[in-house]
Amino acid sequence: MNMSTKPKLRIATATLAGCFGCHMSFLDIDERLFDLMELVEFDRSPLTDIKTCGPCDIGLIEGGLCNAENVHVLREFRANCKILVAVGACAINGGLPAQRNHLSLSMILEEVYHAQHGLVDGFIPNDPELPLPLDQVHPIHEVVKVDYFIPGCPPSGDAIWKVLTDLIAGREPELGHGLVHYD
């Protein structure tokens, strides 16, 4: 363990129905990562490859909910993280994956696995290992209580840094013009 006087905050991150773009943007805080590592340590995250989330101070969720596994991960985060943050457009309004919401799931599966041109003997995968898709893609606030939101597709490294440093310092996060973006 680090010997600093203040215990490090634990942060967990996950990508649900997202593209990892928000995680990439997180890495865009560049050399500030070194400053961050002085203040926090990472629990479950694609950065650590830890597979389950233990008790944490802050959870960052990228992506919305498109299948049952997404729901399990989100619930695990909500149960373990004192502060849960929705990061990026997909976590906040479903984003690109949610653009299937006006179509019925049966129709989509039919089209992709049966009807599409060039498919021979197509079948819908039914391995129990695979998470089943939900009939619609939901932003995470429709399933659990979310404490903060960082909009953007992706949010800039600066926006993520601002919210994280505000939270670490115990301040109410504030973005302001230039950092609030939905695109």
Binding site: I92, N93, N101, H102, H141, E142, G176, H177, V180, H181
Partner: peptide
Amino acid sequence: AYELDMMSPHFDHFSPN
């Protein structure tokens, strides 16, 4: 929405067709 610091849509989406 930027001007008014809208961070999320807050309500459940209607997802109309």
